[in-house]
Simulated scan of single mutants.
Amino acid sequence: MKPLIIGMIHLPPLPGSPNSKMSLEELLEYVRSEARVLEEAGVEAAIVENLGDYPFYKDEVPPVTVSVMTLLVREVVKSSSLKVGVNILRNACSQALSVAYVTGAEFIRCNILNGVYATDQGIIEGKGYEILRLRRYLNANVRIYADVHVKHAVPIYSVPIEVAAQDLAERGGADAVIVSGIRSPIPPDIEKVKIVKEAVKDKPVLIGSGISLSNFRDYCKIADGLIVGEADFKVNREIGGRSLKESYEKLVKECREMVR
């Protein structure tokens, strides 16, 4: 079975964030262009993420961020055939779920669904109890893709990754488990991915960091999905910048050929 290729639409700084410069119309044109590039490259899905809003809030973002994210995610849903996901950094998972529900997006990425982590935003506790109840209350058909031993963080409730993955999939209610390296540019060890796949046999396992043009073949063979958005897939290798169609095309083509 071929892995799901998920491109990243990394948003520039949004209104209300420290480095905001673009108007709403400029942001709308930006996401339309990004969706078009990914779609033409053969990518099946995309996550819309407020990467430009650093430094990030821990788990609740201001109303203006939710409003703008809703506008932009809806534009991607309307203007493309991509399966669309939402990630509101650092861990505004309930708000991401609300945006996904309102816009018709299919899934969210939740960095910390359960457990407790020391992060560069401070101590963050998982709110799976809140997010799953919100989804039930809304009767929303939105899937939750959640990280295990998430990047840019150290677990305080420190258990082996296979135990954390089982807790995430069973007690946390994740629909898919994401495995990443310690930072965004760094991929997870292949052995770590295998351990997680063995631990959560009935749930998809996705790669959440470090995919490059030099290593993607290794992960296409083992993972159920790749979240792709590092420097190799950006114009001028600009982190958080515009997507590079040619790189995505190469990855999609070769991954599909490998798993025929």
Rank of each mutant, 00 (worst) to 15 (best):
A169S: 08
V37A: 09
M8F: 02
V66C: 09
P187L: 04
H149V: 02
A140W: 05
G52E: 05
V61Q: 02
L113H: 04
P188S: 07
K221E: 14
V196W: 01
T70N: 10
V68S: 10
A164P: 08
R237K: 08
K221P: 00
V37C: 06
L113W: 04
F56T: 07
G173K: 00
H152A: 10
L244A: 10
R135F: 08
K245S: 12
P185E: 12
R136W: 00
Y54R: 12
A174L: 02
P15Q: 12
R32T: 11
E191M: 12
G42W: 05
K250M: 14
S20D: 04
T103D: 01
Y54Q: 10
H149N: 14
P204V: 12
I222N: 07
L11I: 08
K78Q: 07
I112C: 08
A165G: 03
K245I: 13
V150E: 05
L251Q: 10
T119S: 13
A140Y: 07
Q166R: 15
V31L: 06
R256D: 12
I124G: 06
A169F: 01
E162L: 03
N19M: 13
A105W: 02
P12H: 10
R32A: 10
I239Q: 01
G85W: 02
L51T: 15
R260W: 11
I190Y: 14
R237C: 00
C255Y: 06
C110K: 02
L132D: 08
E246R: 14
Q166G: 01
N111A: 13
L11Q: 04
Q121M: 15
C93Q: 03
N19Q: 14
M1S: 09
G128Q: 00
Y30W: 10
P62R: 14
N139G: 15
Y145R: 03
E198H: 11
G173W: 00
G241K: 04
R171N: 02
